[in-house]
Computed example of a mutant assay.
Amino acid sequence: MTQHDTPVLRVAGRPVGRYVTRPELPDRLAPRPYLHPVTTLAGTAVTELSPADHAHHLGVGVAVPDVEGHNFWGGRTFVRDHGPTELDNHGSQRHTAFQLRDPDGFVAELRWVAAGAELLRERRTVAATELTDTAWALDFTFSLSNVTSGPLSIGSPATNGRSGAAYGGFFWRARNEESAPDVFTADREGEAEVHGTRADWLALAGWGSPRSSEAESGGEAESGGGWTLVFAGATEDTRRDPWFVRAAEYPGVGSSLAHTERLPVLPGETLVRRVVTVVADGRLERGEAAALVRKAVGR
């Protein structure tokens, strides 16, 4: 893989993220561009790549388990009345070009292809901005356009019959650690209280120590200081999407494009979502998280 394929995001001259455009992955993992590793300004890694518990979790990116029956998430597909099922239905996101590349961000074009046909065309805009000496923001916007001659619909395991599993959209697989991270919003606390709710922002706060099994195996989640990720929907449409949250089973946060109903995308129509994530050293309190979100999003 050439250096051109893996631009590095920098904040105040420090590398904070690597973007892999053309990963060499098996079809079952729904190959797609991703950001990994993403780090705090002090260098603590806050993403995972293909962890043992979910090999198809690829750092930070966009993953959708059901686009008109095609799996752009990876792994098994949830089939109504059958459960998780191995199917030969995986699609791939193919990087085609950078429209813009700077040390602090880029604009990329992608094609979503399945069964030999292009279904969606994506424009992805990513920017890294310094907030303080200990925090920066990852601004991630994706626009998906239906380039087929007919309607498409986006679904999730939840819309296919699996309650509580409305994942699909922006997704951040956080680092594995010995203890589960804390989860909180402005007025809720804990995975059970936050998962599936709408909130202006959601925080995941970890401890900075890897799980012992990964430390012993030389995994990428090296030890470091505590960390906090604060996710905020930066547009009205994004704020309408409930949050998908996991902490106890594995640490991850994403948006839910199809929470209770399938999301239609008509021919020529484009859906846009923008999530801004504060990446901070240390474990933030509510007031600190809210203040950084206001600075990052401008509201």
Rank of each mutant, 00 (worst) to 15 (best):
A289E: 04
G61E: 08
T21A: 07
E122Y: 12
T85C: 06
G59R: 03
P65H: 00
L41G: 01
D237S: 12
A55C: 01
P37I: 01
G155K: 06
G219Q: 08
V67E: 14
T159H: 12
S213I: 06
F171G: 00
T260C: 09
G69D: 07
G75M: 00
W172R: 01
A114Y: 09
V194I: 10
R94G: 04
V16T: 02
Y167W: 08
S179L: 15
L202Y: 03
G69I: 12
E216A: 15
H4Q: 09
G254Y: 10
H95T: 05
V20R: 10
A232I: 07
V265Q: 12
V297Y: 14
V60C: 01
P65E: 02
L49M: 13
A115W: 02
S143C: 10
L25C: 06
G169Q: 02
L257N: 05
A135M: 02
V64L: 11
L58G: 03
G224L: 01
T40G: 02
A45S: 13
A63V: 09
G208Y: 01
V107K: 10
G287E: 13
W73P: 07
V278I: 12
A258E: 11
G168K: 08
V275W: 13
T159M: 08
Y250W: 06
Y167V: 05
R32C: 09
H54R: 08
A135T: 04
E285D: 15
L9W: 00
G206H: 06
A296C: 07
P31C: 03
P251Y: 00
L292I: 05
R101G: 03
